[in-house]
Design a protein around this nucleic acid. Structure first.
Lengths: 201, 201
DNA sequence: TAGACTCCTTAACGCACGTTAAGCATTCGG
DNA sequence: CCGAATGCTTAACGTGCGTTAAGGAGTCTA
């Protein structure tokens, strides 16, 4: 369990190592990932952060806003990271794919909670932010589809999309396992499995 | 808190052909998968089934009992199917793996909603049934680990487990895509990707 | 046609949750 | 030293939800 047991009751204020908002958000993400959006109450989040539930309204407009604030940067980070990696290898689809895989695996291993959130709780959002996130996700997928289509011309776009989603499922399997295996070894296993899954050799 | 599930008919009457209970359960599974366990109310489920919310209590002990009733058969079905497939190929790990993959892909394509439920809502269960399901899942995973370990002796058990979970993530990616691609073609793509991911050739 | 059985209804209860309101303490720039 | 900003508190409200209670109508069997 993620415990942030800084100042409880009285005394000197927070050390403010970074914005309180971000601190609270990280705690909320952990709870959402562990028990689901609807399974966590504002009081739960407050308690975990060392404050009461209503205190959270000084940092976020509401519960939904917390989920949005947690999910948007993930989609943006994946998309921008993916675009950057692809741009590094113009005309070399094979190298671009290897770099995409490396990037995504590292991202998934570094942010398992947020990955799980993305997989499970996206549908709990209201129309507008959900559409925005879906749009970012779609653009990210299309980066993969473009690279895959160059690498395997026998596939049409929709087939490449199936493979891209399959690859995400593979690489995002990381939140489901406790760290019995060393992180670097796990990254290597996932990279190899993904490259073989997508290219067949 | 923990309510006793009224499971089957306790007395003389034999189990029905396709009971109303099963009909309702399938509807509930669809709703749970689409909007999340906590995002669906008993009234929602009742309405979708053409009855009122409280009517459901004549078929299930409560909301949790519905989730349990939906999830247990899935784990059992996967485990027993997996054991059966492995038993078909004694001493031939390669054939056993191919059969396991075929079985799991067909299962996932046939039951996307229930697969999504398993991935997302397992943690919403109370201790006891959750442990039972986790036990079934673990046994199923170990079927894969055993086959994988024979096929790739250079991996230790925990590494094989990482790969098994990765394969599940790949094959279970099917609920995330609408059927833009023909079902048989999709199954073929997932089978090939999985076998390559796990064996490397 | 009695009796049992299945399946459903409306009404209501109690609680948990998201949210709002109003106000207090500490910190800090000018 | 003042006044704003920051970050929190307790109290309370409305509502949605899971659940219980009590009863009635249709169907099958003997």
């Amino acid at each position: 369990m993620t415990t942030v047991d800084q100042q409880q009751r009285p005394g000197p204020p927070a050390p403010r190592r970074r914005s309180r908002r971000d601190e609270i958000l990280e705690i909320a993400v952990g709870l959402f990932a562990a028990r689901g959006y609807h399974g966590v109450s504002m009081d739960d989040i407050g308690s975990a952060a060392g404050v009461t539930g209503p205190a959270l309204y000084h940092h976020f407009a509401g519960k939904e806003a917390m989920l949005v604030a947690a999910l948007i940067p993930v989609s943006e980070g994946l998309l921008h990271g993916g675009e950057a990696r692809v741009a590094l290898h113009p005309g070399d689809a094979s190298a671009a794919l290897a770099d995409l895989i490396d990037f995504h695996v590292e991202f998934a291993l570094a942010n398992p909670a947020v990955i799980a959130l993305h997989l499970h709780e996206l549908d709990r959002l209201p129309e507008e932010p959900r559409r925005q996130i879906r749009r970012l996700q779609r653009l990210y997928v299309e980066e993969w589809v473009a690279v895959l289509s160059k690498l395997r011309p026998e596939l049409d776009a929709s087939e490449a999309r199936v493979l891209a989603h399959a690859a995400f499922g593979l690489m995002n399997s990381t939140p489901f396992l406790g760290g019995e295996v060393d992180r670097r070894r796990r990254a290597a296993l996932l990279r190899e499995a993904t490259i073989h899954a997508l290219t067949g050799h």
